[in-house]
Simulated assay, not measured.
Amino acid sequence: MKISAAQRVQNENRIRAAMDRLLRGEIPPGGNCDIKTLAREANVDRTAFYGTRPYAHLREEFEHRIQQLQATGHNPDPKTAQIDRLKSEIDKLKNSLAQANSTIQELSDFRSQALARLAAQHDEIQRLRTTADPGTNISLLPSARQKIIGPC
């Protein structure tokens, strides 16, 4: 069905008004900042925005304006902005978790090495206590198990 020039101008005006609302971030519930929502808000058939249809130039203009906004760091669709922000936060958290796991592994390795060294030093001390040469000027200290009896 053909539309008159006046109807076409009215449709274009509705499309441009809907385009401005969407690009300001006035996204209707259940919608996005996309052609489907634009067509629904302007009450125009979505297929009119594709190919050689009458409003293809408005689709190109809409997509170009969205790209310009995104290039300047503005995202008219709050859901998309939230998704991008959450993805960025997830990446940061994954990096933080990987770094924490690496630190935990390093500290576990250090703990194991420290315990092994302490055990080796304990064994060496025990060996030295049992092999003390009686001819030297070394006094044996009482072990922790022996009670030290001192003046009362």
Rank of each mutant, 00 (worst) to 15 (best):
I3S: 05
A5K: 12
A6R: 15
Q7M: 04
Q7N: 08
R8K: 14
R8F: 04
V9D: 11
Q10H: 08
N13T: 05
I15Y: 07
I15F: 06
A18Q: 03
R21N: 05
R21G: 00
R21H: 06
L22S: 01
L22D: 03
L22T: 01
L23D: 01
L23M: 06
R24N: 10
R24M: 05
G25P: 02
G25F: 01
I27G: 00
P28S: 06
P29I: 09
G30I: 06
G30T: 04
G31S: 03
K36P: 00
A39V: 05
E41R: 12
E41T: 12
A42W: 12
N43S: 14
V44H: 02
V44I: 12
D45P: 04
R46W: 03
R46L: 03
F49K: 03
F49D: 00
Y50L: 06
Y50S: 07
Y50E: 10
T52W: 11
T52P: 05
P54M: 02
P54Q: 06
Y55L: 00
A56T: 07
A56I: 00
A56V: 00
A56M: 02
L58Q: 02
R59N: 03
R59I: 00
E60N: 15
E60C: 10
E61D: 11
F62Q: 02
R65K: 11
I66A: 04
Q67V: 11
Q67G: 08
Q68S: 12
Q70G: 01
A71T: 08
G73Q: 07
H74I: 09
H74S: 10
N75F: 06
P76L: 04
D77C: 13
P78S: 03
T80Y: 12
T80M: 10
Q82Y: 02
D84S: 15
S88D: 12
I90S: 05
I90W: 07
I90Y: 14
D91A: 11
D91E: 13
D91P: 00
K92A: 10
K94S: 05
K94F: 04
L97T: 07
A98M: 09
A98N: 10
A100D: 02
N101I: 05
S102D: 10
I104K: 11
E106I: 12
S108R: 13
S108P: 00
F110D: 13
R111I: 07
A114Y: 12
A114V: 13
R117K: 13
A119Q: 14
A120C: 04
H122I: 08
E124Q: 14
E124P: 03
L128H: 04
R129G: 00
T130W: 04
T130R: 13
T130Y: 04
T131F: 01
T131G: 04
A132R: 13
D133C: 07
T136N: 12
S139I: 15
L140G: 13
S143G: 15
S143D: 12
A144S: 10
R145S: 08
Q146H: 06
K147D: 01
I148N: 03
C152T: 14
